[in-house]
Design a protein around this nucleic acid. Structure first.
Lengths: 140, 140
DNA sequence: CACTTTTCTTGAATGAGTCAAGACTTCAGT
DNA sequence: ACTGAAGTCTTGACTCATTCAAGAAAAGTG
């Protein structure tokens, strides 16, 4: 039983509703910041025989459609989340790689207006904060 | 003939001065935002027989020492630059992948103070602007 | 219900980056 | 300068996330 939301989300962006896509959407929604392997595992919990290829494909399609967002901090594999379009950013732990969401300090869209954009037409600013998470800093 | 600066830079951070490291430093300095393959090629122009392994190793060491900085935009391989410590950011073209430097719009350190850092001790904010470069937007 | 298009499965390939062991430099101290 | 210990480099093999390709299956349309 999939909450109908996901089906609707797919239809809203003119994508076909397929079981792999529903499984991937639900998996990503349930495990924010999960890497691809975890998404595959979570998707298989809902739909045991999905191929990893279908998951990769779904993730790409959903990312293009804007239903999921992928982040790829240096030194980490790709990670996905369903929180999109609200201009939030991420803190990444240098030690264990864990990720947490962060709303921007500045109330409005941060740094979206680069001083000199060299003629680039900018449509998105991606911010990654690097640091050490509470758990890792304890056992220093 | 290497400008002595690079040797001094290495000594300043207590690293041994080796020919591969000098070649890599100079290569990165001469080709900002170059990917690893280009760095290897440029380093070999100065020191024909460096192994790719030595380049990778030097890049890691130099990165840790803070002499070079690596950036890894999603969908791209690792890239390196020697401009460090001045808190500048990057614009990446979604179409051709080219990269340009951008000083932050806000005069001071941007967004370094996340609103709620979840207990993370943050030491760096990395900003990537996504957009389309002038050349790519011309031929739309 | 049959058709067309898009998506999924299977299986193999790609390639940036890593690992390991031995040979070789670098550099502090004699 | 020379020597030795510590740190680096070379060589070559290997990992594993991600991609490619071709046929089979399913989704949506009239």
């Amino acid at each position: 039983m999939h909450p109908p939301d996901f089906q609707q989300q797919l239809r809203d962006v003119a994508l076909r509703v397929t079981r792999p896509r529903l499984a991937v959407l639900e998996a990503v929604h349930a495990h924010p910041h999960a890497d691809t392997e975890s998404v595959i595992a979570a998707a298989r919990a809902l739909l045991p025989d999905v191929s990893h290829q279908a998951v990769y494909d779904s993730l790409h399609t959903l990312t293009e459609a804007g239903l999921v967002r992928s982040i790829k901090p240096a030194g980490s594999v790709a990670r996905y989340e369903t929180r999109t379009g609200d201009n939030h950013h991420h803190v990444v732990c240098r030690s264990c790689g864990s990720i947490a969401d962060v709303d921007c300090a500045v109330g409005h869209v941060p740094c979206l207006t680069a001083s000199d954009s060299h003629g680039f037409v900018i449509d998105e600013a991606e911010v990654i904060y690097w640091g050490v998470c509470p758990e890792c800093s304890v056992r220093t």
